[in-house]
Amino acid sequence: MTLKYAYFPGCVAQGACRELYMSTGALTSALGIELVELKKGSCCGSGTFKEDSQFLEDSVNARNIALAEELNLPLLTHCSTCQGVIGHVDERLKEAKENNPDYLAQVNGILQQEGCSPYRGTSEVKHLLWALVGDYGLEALREKVTRPLSGLKCAAFYGCYLLRTQEHLPFDDPYNPQSIENVFQAVGATPVYYRGRTQCCGWPLSSYATEQSFQLAGGHLEEAIAAGADCLVTPCPLCHLQLDSRQPEVANMTGKKLGLPVLHLPQLVALALGIAPKELGLEKHIVSTKPVLAKLGL
């Protein structure tokens, strides 16, 4: 059976991380996964809508989920933050359906008033990582590998929202997750463990508490390097912006030499499927990914 998802691209993959959009497309088409892009979707608010109003976050994301429900498909995102925000809204509204129907009626009331489809609570909100591990399956993925990433030491960077916003996670323990490391092994790479892999990258503070924000990022990068990582791999484009795009500034501030390439999760998996680096936008990174490609003989 073909796997099919309502694809929620999010803001960053359409903006400063277009290489993520490219690589998700390349990976899913190589695996025969069908994506129906939600062109009418909107920003999830990245945790900030809620600081304005919970009802705002819930209404906007109920609308996003309803777009997937209209297609009778699970919603798929390649962003830890989008997954955590929309998944948490889905969890809360499903619970409201049982225990607080008045609140759900208010959400659906405003959606109806605005001519949007109602939220029904019939979909699921999945990260690409979960689709790979849970739906496609690691065994099936292993069979698709044509270029095992042997000898490549990869350090996962999960992103807070994927691990700790929701009460129920399909596989991972929020303090000691394994799913990305399991993907590493499926594609022949070697997982590297370090404390920072479950921690905050510092992105939410970067616009106004830059020094603290960079200290967080710098600490994780240094630890991963000390643990012997050839690269970081993240399922979150906001973490990527912080850890890759701002890495030179982080290095300047901490005074430590960094230069650790940061890959998006689908880029790494797609490399193992034999997809060309150019199709994955690997040249669009601030920290050069050439050392990773060299290690793979590319």
């Binding site: 903006g15 400063a16 277009r18 290489e19 009418k40 979707g41 909107s42 040249e283 669009k284 990174h285």
Partner: peptide, 20 residues
């Protein structure tokens, strides 16, 4: 690095989102 977004594509339902 060719990473800077030179263009921006609004959502196809931007009016609906704004109104909501």
């Amino acid at each position: 690095k060719g990473k800077f977004p030179l263009s921006f594509e609004p959502s196809e339902a931007v009016e609906e989102v704004r109104s909501l």
